[in-house]
Design a protein around this nucleic acid. Structure first.
Lengths: 265, 265
DNA sequence: CGCTTCGTTGACCCCGTTCAACACAAGTGG
DNA sequence: CCACTTGTGTTGAACGGGGTCAACGAAGCG
């Protein structure tokens, strides 16, 4: 059950001085003078399992990873997805074992950063880790907000827009991209069923906002998608809020406060 | 809108060497040689607002705080509650302004830790912050798992058990305690409506698992409450899983894997 | 070629939302 | 003192979004 990261191809070990540019929240910090190991992980292989001893962090260099946990009664729940430039294993920094499962959704490469490098001499490295953790907390809160206030179709919309933003930050097209995860994975992450994900995608396509062909997604009207997130909460009931002052305030939201999307990106 | 932390009573400033025992994940770390300021915050007062410049972290010394965010269309979403021994403001460590609102739900006291203390010379302090952030990420993931897999009544049950565990860790009774937050706050956090919270509490009381009188809660059968979390997901439909092996497996869950509760505590 | 995994769509129905009414306590001002 | 307001909590009735179940098609693979 735990003999996993052994089947990950261990590649040439290097101990150079490398500079990692990380697009996380504008922090382009250097991870100075840190020895690391490159690893290739093939599609569907686990990078690590919950319960395995935590010895390293992993910087995603290429590919897509799925983070998942297991409920008390054995079902899987997806906690997130990670792309190039993001870190894996951070959540277990203060405990001896990893707390989640991480599996590659396509052939991928990671840079393994031994936790032994997290010393006083590598203060800038530690600082970078801390910053990344803080932004991770904000991202999680934003998703909790998204899942707690939006209906199924809006959640899928938010998911696609978030993905598009990540694609853009990685230099890929933000209009046309491939979903590397199944509908079940998306549904698990968004706390809806896979049939609901399918139905939401179909409806968005019917409305001309996206084009879906299997896992290939084409965003046809991102502006309208973003607009659809800013009103009509759970169930489109609105029901005219019982006359309020005069004029009945229109729905042209003067977008104050951060939308879940911007912050999650 | 932002002239808030000014109405917080600034108390005698001290610059001693203090040792904070923090019950977070068994880490009883010292926050060595750090200057801090004690502040009292009265019920309903904000400790800080989203958007305010972030200059300090806050260690809750006494009282209860509510963390909330604002959706794109102006509604509030509760992101969590914090009690004695926990930190506030961590999520904004890598950005110049606080990212959420924090308000006291009862008269409280915090220790203000200036972020300027987060230097290389205070490496142990930084390390403690990092560890706390990691456990915060895990806690958030566990709540996402809870909200994504349990129905309304189970969420309320999980909330009460989590609260009981926190009370116990603070030396209070884990059987009888007061809710410092409204039904609306609980519902916002659990992604259900306040009426649903009320109904769930009433039903738990009817079943003899708890006793409710306003905000006073009495856990009468915590064991049965814990057991109720380990099966019957969303909507009690079960529908007899089409005959499985022999014997129709009883509901005496052999609690393998971590329950959301244990991890969230 | 089966075999498995994945995706789509339709029909039915239940849990939680919505709306409404009411109870209760705490201020507040006359 | 009462009247009034505001915030909070409880409960009932009705509705609908999304879950459940089922059937089918498509794609990948040994």
């Amino acid at each position: 059950m735990l003999n996993v990261s052994s089947d990950v191809q261990r590649q040439f070990a290097v101990h150079p001085t490398f500079t990692a540019r990380c697009g996380i929240d504008g922090m382009e910090g250097l991870v100075g003078r840190t020895s690391f190991v490159r690893r290739k992980v093939k599609c569907r292989e686990h990078l690590f399992h919950a319960g395995q001893p935590r010895r390293s962090l992993f910087l995603v260099h290429a590919g897509t990873f799925k983070i998942s946990m297991v409920t008390a009664d054995g079902r899987e729940k997806v906690a997130g997805f990670r792309y190039a430039g993001e870190l894996l294993g951070l959540d277990a920094l203060d405990i001896p074992s990893y707390a989640c499962d991480v599996v590659a959704l396509e052939d991928a490469e990671v840079w393994e950063l031994p936790c032994s490098e997290l010393t006083e001499e590598r203060f800038e490295f530690v600082r970078w880790i801390t910053s990344t953790l803080a932004s991770e907390v904000r991202r999680d809160w934003n998703w909790m907000l998204t899942l707690g206030t939006l209906n199924a179709e809006q959640r899928v919309t938010a998911f696609l827009l978030d993905l598009a933003a990540r694609m853009a930050s990685m230099g890929f097209s933000e209009r046309r991209f491939l979903l590397r995860m199944t509908r079940a994975d998306i549904g698990s992450f968004l706390a809806i069923k896979l049939e609901t994900v399918t139905r939401a995608l179909s409806r968005l396509q019917t409305r001309g906002m996206i084009s879906v062909r299997g896992r290939s997604i084409d965003l046809l009207d991102a502006a309208r998608m973003r607009a659809s997130l800013e009103s009509e909460d759970r169930a489109g009931q609105v029901r005219m809020p019982r006359r309020r002052a005069a004029g009945g305030l229109p729905f042209t939201s003067t977008g104050r406060s951060v939308t879940a999307l911007q912050a999650a990106a």
